[in-house]
Simulated scan of single mutants.
Amino acid sequence: MVVDSEPRVLKHQIVRRNLDAVLDGMAPGDPFPSERDLAEQHDVSRETLRQAIRELLVAGRLERRGRATVVAESKVVLPLAIGSYTEAAREKGLTATRILVGWSVYDADDALADTLRIDAGDSVVQLERVFTTGDVRVGLETTRLPAYRVPGLVENFDYRTSLYSEMRTRGILFGRVVDAIETVLPDAREAALLTVDARTPMFLLNRVSYDVDGVPIEQRRSLYRGDRMTFTAVMEGE
């Protein structure tokens, strides 16, 4: 069996390259031409054109605003590190805030208790927030903390600020984190909270944070829009 070393270039990929070149000359917020006009211009079917546009949406070069398609802002590039998303975004000169989804307090099940090194049935505080950058909803974060470590958090914490900063004021210092990252699609609720199509690819980050003594601080589940976010990591040799 002979395998062709030259991969086949599909028609929609050729169209996408042409559209990429068009986008290079446009500014964020500019309206993108209609599917009908583009299909006629490139002499392809509407379905082929939609495939090309879909790839540009996933790549973060285009975005939907209601029924309109416009040129997107550049992706937000942040380091994958211990710290606050909002603080990191603001350090890059970006506007960033949080929208409260809700607080809850409940008893830990066996799995969560094992992760947080507490007893099953112990109280856990859960905080769920949406992260925004430039008025665009880019992430959904659910943080679970042992209640004994954060007395008064629900009543006194300003959800618009950094939880990491709040923990520091309580004398709790982050020593290390363990992250697991994968790509997923949002469920219906998550898509609604992030105001995206349910086919939008997401980065899912599951994190357990530990203090300087190795005691768990939090279990966090963060869902970030793949079309709006890019993460970097720096690794150094020994």
Score class of each variant (00 low, 15 high):
7 P>C: 07
148 Y>T: 10
10 L>K: 14
126 Q>H: 11
20 D>Y: 02
77 V>M: 06
194 L>Y: 01
168 R>Y: 09
153 L>D: 03
9 V>E: 13
212 V>Y: 03
176 R>S: 14
161 T>F: 09
126 Q>T: 12
193 L>E: 12
88 A>P: 09
227 D>L: 05
155 E>L: 03
101 V>F: 07
208 V>D: 09
50 R>V: 07
64 R>I: 05
89 A>K: 01
125 V>L: 11
167 M>Y: 08
226 G>K: 02
205 L>T: 07
109 D>E: 11
52 A>L: 13
58 V>T: 05
135 D>H: 11
171 G>V: 05
26 M>V: 01
77 V>P: 07
68 A>S: 14
97 T>W: 13
144 R>G: 00
195 T>K: 14
208 V>K: 08
77 V>S: 04
125 V>E: 12
61 R>L: 07
135 D>Q: 13
120 A>P: 07
86 T>P: 10
60 G>L: 03
97 T>K: 13
136 V>H: 07
218 E>M: 09
5 S>D: 12
150 V>Y: 02
46 R>Q: 12
21 A>F: 10
165 S>E: 15
198 A>N: 14
62 L>T: 00
66 G>Q: 08
54 R>D: 14
103 W>D: 08
164 Y>E: 11
69 T>F: 00
32 F>G: 00
197 D>N: 12
70 V>I: 10
127 L>T: 03
66 G>S: 04
164 Y>K: 07
8 R>W: 06
232 T>G: 01
167 M>H: 06
130 V>K: 02
132 T>G: 03
76 V>M: 06
199 R>S: 15
233 A>N: 06
167 M>K: 00
68 A>H: 14
167 M>T: 01
190 E>S: 06
28 P>E: 07
204 L>Y: 03
58 V>E: 05
29 G>I: 06
179 D>C: 01
15 V>D: 08
110 D>K: 15
219 Q>T: 12
216 P>L: 08
114 D>N: 15
124 V>F: 01
